[in-house]
Each structure stands twice: as C-alpha cells, then as structure tokens.
C-alpha cells in the first residue's frame, strides 16, 4: 500500500484538527501539523513530505511566503502545495497559485472537497 505524509500548516487548532481528521481517512496517510510558516519550514527540513496543505493568514510567516520559500528551494520545489483560503479571498488564492501552489480548497472546508483535491494531486504525482 502506498504511504503518504502530509504537512498541515494552520494556526488555528480547530482547523488543524479538522483537516488532519479528514486526511486520516486516506489509507496509508501520516499527518504532521505545524502552527505557522516557520514551524512548517523546520518540519520540512526534518522529514520528507508528499503534500503540503497550508492556510494563508498565519503569524510569523504566512502561507504565501511559505509557498514561495518552498518553490524557490531546489530540494523542496517539487512538493505539491494546496492552499486553504477563505471563500471570497480571490486575491490571496490567485497569488498562491501564481507563486506555485498546485490547488486550493475553500473554507469552510468540505471534507469531500478536500479529499478529492488531495487524491487528485496524489494521483497526478504517482
């Protein structure tokens, strides 16, 4: 069975738990959580990840900066990134995509929607 490691970057513990909860339903998934962009970078440098899911608005380092850091680093630039945006915040979403995010999911998160997006990305990488 294939195994996937996800990095969930969210400052809100509620959202983090909800996203992790959904991702746990993907067979063979391991989930690592980070509370902000810098925490995420530290976790990135410690282990391999298959997909990064990140919120946009976060303290210390926001999701957009995280996307550009990941895309600019030769070691990590191929990791797919999904940005989690608030519906209506089209601006942030577009910037995320233009910085190199692969997809976006809107809040309030629909589990099925999130899983479909993640599965599509996993499939396209396989």
């Amino acid at each position: 069975m294939p195994e996937y490691t996800f990095l969930v970057v969210e400052d809100s513990p509620t959202m983090r738990q909800l996203i992790s909860f959904a991702l746990k339903r993907i067979p063979g998934s391991t989930i690592v959580e980070a509370g902000d962009g810098i925490d995420a970078l530290k976790k990135l440098s410690n282990q391999k990840f298959d997909v990064i899911l990140t919120d946009i608005n976060m303290p210390l380092m926001d999701g957009l900066k995280l996307v550009s850091m990941v895309r600019n680093d030769p070691t990590y630039k191929d990791i797919p990134v999904i940005v989690i945006t608030t519906e209506g915040a089209d601006d942030a979403r577009e910037r995320g995509i233009s910085l190199g995010a692969n997809a976006y999911v809107s809040k309030p998160i629909q589990t099925q929607d999130l899983l479909n997006t993640v599965n599509e990305i996993i499939k396209s990488k396989a």
């Binding site: 809100s12 509620t14 959202m15 909800l18 519906e87 809040k107 309030p108 998160i109």
Partner: peptide, 14 residues
C-alpha cells in the same frame, strides 16, 4: 477564539 473559529470556519459565517 475557538467559538469564533467554529462559527467562522465550520459554519461559514462572515
């Protein structure tokens, strides 16, 4: 803050 988040992110209130 948690109550705010639930109403905002789980229910979808603006």
């Amino acid at each position: 803050k948690i109550v705010l988040e639930i109403v905002m992110n789980l229910i979808g209130a603006e």
